[in-house]
Simulated scan of single mutants.
Amino acid sequence: MSDSNTTDFTNPSTFILLGIPGLESAHVWIAIPFCAMYAITILGNITILFIVKTEPSLHEPMYYFLCMLAVTDLVLSTSTLPTILSNFWFNSREIDFNACLTQLYFVHSFSVIESGILVAMAFDRYVAICHPLRHSTILNNPVVAKMGLAVVLQGAILALPFPVLARQWPYCRTNIIPYTHCEHMPVVKLACVDIRVSSYYGLFALFCSCGLYVIFIVISYTQILRAIFRLPTKDARLKTFGTCTSHLCVILTFYTPNLFSSLMTRFGLKIPLHLHILFANMYLLVPPMLNPIIYGVRIKQIRARLFQFVTLKGT
């Protein structure tokens, strides 16, 4: 009788997610910080959405983009964390083939959307600092809505070939994925044909969603820094630059693990598999958790509104 792991099949009905190979005995304990981070993500981002919705003074482009970021973080983390926690706590490793492709689509599309939102926020900071008198006319509500729609459409379209290509490959080696969830490269690497088309498209999408967007962000902040250094006093320069620090922190927490994880997956850097997978999960766990904390701490209006809300609840 042939081993079920090597039985020939063109489209498997299910995939098996191993989680973190080599650390199976620690899955229950690893799931505890994962769950805590997910809970903080849900609470923090819903709090941001509630504060912006209920505070009229925050109905401005910067906070609209922040709400888009919060929604994207909620979807990105929710598309993967329940699967991971179910695997780690209840040993539920099977995932339907179509559900797997849907999950990898959500992961990649909302990663692109988040990247696009960070570019839109950089543009907002550029207009606010370099053209402050025209900010309300350049970034009015219709323009913000169109920018948000463009970012969503780009993410949806750019990620669409991932499941389309993954569906057409024959899988005749194994249906076991040594990963915590379904992502593009770990899935298509199971195919028994040449997958260079998928790999090359993945690099193209990575260049579009990270490379080009990082270039746009660098250009925006180059102009911002030039405007800041032209300010007459040191206090004015520090105060103006302080309005950008939260956005810069969010950019670093998102792009650093995202780029490193994508390059590790494609080029197989000599890193132990369990460390590779743990690090790859960081861009799904850490940015959605830290973003509301960073903005809650750094933005005075949100901090004040949150303090007021907590004080009223305590009385």
Rank of each mutant, 00 (worst) to 15 (best):
H184L: 11
G242P: 06
L248V: 13
D8I: 12
Y64G: 11
L212Y: 10
P12Y: 02
R93E: 05
F34A: 09
F241Y: 13
H276K: 05
A36F: 15
L306N: 00
I294R: 06
R237G: 10
L139I: 00
H181R: 07
C210H: 11
L206V: 01
N11W: 12
M62C: 10
F90Y: 14
C249L: 11
P163D: 06
I293A: 03
G22I: 02
I138E: 10
T245D: 02
V151E: 02
R93D: 02
V151S: 11
Q154W: 08
L18A: 15
Q103N: 01
G148W: 06
Y283D: 01
M1D: 08
K189R: 14
D96Y: 09
T102I: 00
S4F: 08
V164F: 04
A145Y: 03
I84F: 11
A31C: 07
L269Q: 03
C172G: 03
T253S: 15
V286Y: 14
C249N: 06
P272V: 00
F88S: 02
L85R: 00
P257R: 15
E183S: 15
V197Q: 12
K300F: 08
A39V: 13
N175C: 05
H184R: 06
L153G: 02
M147L: 15
A156H: 02
L81E: 07
G211I: 04
S220Y: 13
F279E: 09
T6S: 13
L273N: 02
G202T: 13
D96S: 14
L58H: 03
T41K: 04
I32M: 00
T6E: 05
H184C: 11
L263Y: 14
S136G: 11
Y63Q: 02
I46L: 14
V214G: 08
T240I: 04
N98D: 08
S86D: 13
E94H: 12
F267K: 02
L49N: 10
L259P: 01
V297I: 13
I32L: 11
L76T: 14
Y283W: 15
C244Q: 00
G22Y: 01
T78S: 15
P272A: 11
R93A: 01
P288G: 08
M264R: 10
L104R: 02
Y63E: 04
I294K: 04
G19C: 00
M289V: 07
Q308H: 12
K189Y: 01
G148Y: 05
T265C: 03
L238M: 11
L85F: 09
S111F: 08
V218E: 07
E114R: 09
A227P: 06
Y213D: 02
V193Y: 13
M68Q: 03
S261W: 07
K53R: 15
T83I: 09
P257S: 10
T78F: 09
V188M: 03
R266C: 01
F204I: 12
I219P: 00
C249R: 10
I176V: 15
P232S: 14
N5Q: 02
W169P: 08
P61F: 07
T243D: 03
A159R: 00
R196Q: 12
M121E: 07
I176Y: 04
Y63W: 12
F229T: 10
V28I: 04
M121T: 05
F260E: 03
I30S: 07
F65H: 10
V164S: 09
P56K: 08
D124K: 00
